[in-house]
Write a protein that binds this DNA or RNA. Structure first.
Lengths: 191, 191, 191, 191
DNA sequence: GATGAATGAGCGTTCATTCAT
DNA sequence: CATGAATGAACGCTCATTCAT
C-alpha cells in the first residue's frame, strides 16, 4: 500500500465510522483497524484527531464543489442557476449519504461553528458560487434583499433538513420531490 | 438548598454546559461542580447521564409549548397562524438562547434522531399544533401539497438556521428581520 | 416499630441480602430499604457495616447453638454424640438455608479468617461442645489421635460441602442421605 | 518486558492480591500497580475484570492437573490411587499456597458456583480422574455407594479445610500429618 | 517509515457514611 | 430518635497519544 493509499484508507475509515454513528463512535484505534493500518500510523498523516476531522471535512468539501459546479453556468437567469445548483447539491448528498452525514456532524460540532465563523468573517475561503448567486439575485432584484447569512439559511436550512430526513428514511426524495422541494426553497428567497 | 432547588441547579448546570459546548464538554463531574453539588447527588435525581439529557430535553419542550401557544388562535387564517407561531417560536429562542442551543445539540445527536423517529412513527406524542396547522393549510389549499415531513423541514429548517446564526452572532435578528425571515418561510410553503 | 424490632428488621434484611448474593450485593441503602428503615438508622444500632456483619454472624451462631444442643446428651457414647450433634447441625442448616449461606460467606471472608484465628488462639470463646466431644473421643481412644484442628476439618469440611451442595440443588439430602453422610464423616474420624 | 511477560505480571499480581485478601481487595488499579503496568494495559490482555478472574482460575487449574497426574497410575488399587492423588494435591497446595487461596476464593464466589454448576451439569469439561476414581471405587465395591457429589464432598471437604488451616498457620501439615489426614479421608469414603 | 503495545488521565457510576432537619 | 438527601472517594473501564522495535 502506497503512502497515498494509506492516507486515503484512513480518511475513508474515519468518514464511515463518524458518518454512521458520530464522533464518539470513532476511536482512533477503530479507525486504524478499519483502515488496516497501525494506530500510530494515523499520526504520520494527521497531527491529531482534531486535524484528521478537519482535514476530512475539507476533503469532502473539495470533492463536492466540482460535482455541483459541473453543470453550473454563471450567465443564466438566477432562478435557473439556483435550481441547478441546489438540485445537484441534493442529488450529490443522496448519492453520497456518508458525505452528507459527516458534513452534518461536523457542522453541528464546535469544529463546525468555528469553521463557519472564520468563513463568514472572511478569514477562510468559502464557496463563492453561492454568494455570487445570492448577490446577483439581490442586485437583479429577483431575490429578497436580506442579509446574505439569512439567504443562506433560507436556502440551506430546508435542504439540509430534507436531505437528512431522506437519508434517515423519514421521507423518500424521488426526482419529482427533489424538484418540488427546491422550487419551494426558491419561493422562499425569491422576491 | 431544598430538594427541588438541587435538581434545578443540576438541570441548569447541565443546560449551560451542554448548550455551550456540546455533550462531550459536559462530564458529570463538571455538571456537579457547576451545580455546586456532589457528583453522586446527580444520581439521586437522574438514573444516569442519558436520563438527565433526555429529561432536560423534555423539560425544555414543556417550557416552550405554553409560551408559543399563549397567543395562538386556531380559527384564524393559516397565514396568520403560521406567522404568529413561528414568530413566537423564534422570539422564544432569542430570549432563551441556551434552550435553543441545547435543543439543537439534542436533535443532532443519536438521542434526537431516535426521539424524532418515535414522533414521526407516532410512538411518542408530538406537538400537534404544527401538524394541524400544516394539515389545515393543505386542505384549505393555501399550503403546498407536500408530505408533512417536508413541510416541517421547509419551515423549521430556515428557522433553526437563522436562530442559530443570530445566537452565534453571525447576523442580528431585530424585530423587522424576524418578521421578514418568517414571511420568507411562509413564501416557501404557501401555494 | 419498637427499637428492638428495628434492629431485628435490619439484621433480617442484611441476612437475606448477603445470604442470597454475597456481601457485594448488600449495600447499606438496600439493607435499609428492605428493613423499611432509614439508611442512617442502621448506624444507630451498628457502628458501621463491618460491625453489622460481625454481629449478625454472632447472632446466627447464638441462634444455632441451643437448637443443636437441645437433644444433645453429654454422657453417651462418643459415636452417638457425634451422630446426634452433626445430624442436628445439618438439619438446622437445611431448615435455615439463609443462615447457612451467611455463615459460609462470613467464613470465607477476611472477617471469618480473623474470627477463626481468635477462636483457635483462645482470644474468643468458641463452641466447646465440639471440642469436648473430640477431646473425649481422643482420650477414650475411639477417635483418631489427630490435632483438634484437623479433627474439626475432617468433620466440618464434608458437612459444609454437602450442605452447600444440597442448598444449591446439586444433590438432595433426604433423611437417609443425611444419615449415611454423617456416618461417613464418623468413619473419617473414628479410630 | 515482553508481551508475554506483561500478561504474566498482571496474572501474578492479580493472583497475589486476590489470594491474600479476596476479590474486593484487588481493584484493577492496584493490580496494575503491583504488576508495574498501566491501568489500561490490563485490558489489552483481558476484556474485563471478570474475564481476568476466570482466566486466572483456568490457568491455575491447568497448572495443577499435570502435576497431580504425574505420578498417578490408573490400574492400581483404588485405595492407592486415592492416597496418591490426594497426597499430591495437598502437597501441591502446600507448595503453592497462593494458588490454593485463589481457587478457594473463586469457588466461594458466584463465579465458582456457576462454574461448578456447569461442570456438574456436564456443560463444562471437568477433571475426570476424580470421577473415574470414585466410579471405579463404587463399582469395585470398595467405596461407599453414595452419589458422586457427596463422595466428592467427603473427600474434598476435609482436604480443603485442612489445607486452608495449614496455610493460615492454624496447624502444621508435615508429611506424616498429610498422610494421616488423607488416610482419614479414605476412611470416610471407603466401604 | 510503520507498527501496535503501553500509557494514564479522565470518564460514568456506586455506596459507606454523615448530618441537617 | 429517626430520617434520607448529600457526599466524594474509589471503582471498572476507555481512548488519544506516544515510542521502542
Amino acid at each position: 500500500m502506497s503512502k497515498t493509499d494509506k492516507r486515503e484508507e484512513i480518511v475513508r475509515a474515519a468518514l464511515e465510522l463518524i458518518a454512521e454513528n458520530g464522533f464518539h463512535a470513532a476511536p482512533m484505534a477503530l479507525i486504524a483497524e478499519r483502515a488496516k493500518v497501525g494506530a500510530g500510523t494515523i499520526y504520520r498523516y494527521f497531527a491529531n484527531k482534531d486535524v484528521l476531522i478537519s482535514e476530512l471535512y475539507q476533503e469532502l468539501e473539495q470533492r463536492l464543489y466540482p460535482v455541483i459546479l459541473e453543470n453550473y453556468v454563471e450567465n443564466k437567469p438566477i432562478r435557473e442557476r439556483f435550481l441547478r445548483l441546489f438540485t445537484d447539491l441534493i442529488r450529490y448528498f443522496i448519492a453520497n449519504p456518508l458525505d452528507f452525514r459527516y458534513l452534518e456532524q461536523f457542522h453541528n460540532s464546535p469544529y463546525g461553528t468555528e469553521y463557519r465563523r472564520d468563513k463568514i468573517l472572511g478569514k477562510r475561503e468559502g464557496c463563492d458560487v453561492f454568494r455570487n448567486l445570492f448577490e446577483d439575485g439581490i442586485s437583479q432584484q429577483v431575490v429578497k434583499d436580506l442579509p446574505l447569512v439569512i439567504l443562506f439559511d433560507l436556502a440551506f436550512g430546508p435542504i439540509q433538513a430534507v436531505t437528512r430526513d431522506h437519508i434517515l428514511g423519514f421521507v423518500t426524495l424521488d426526482e419529482a420531490m427533489v424538484s418540488r422541494t427546491i422550487e419551494a426553497c426558491w419561493d422562499g428567497i425569491k422576491r
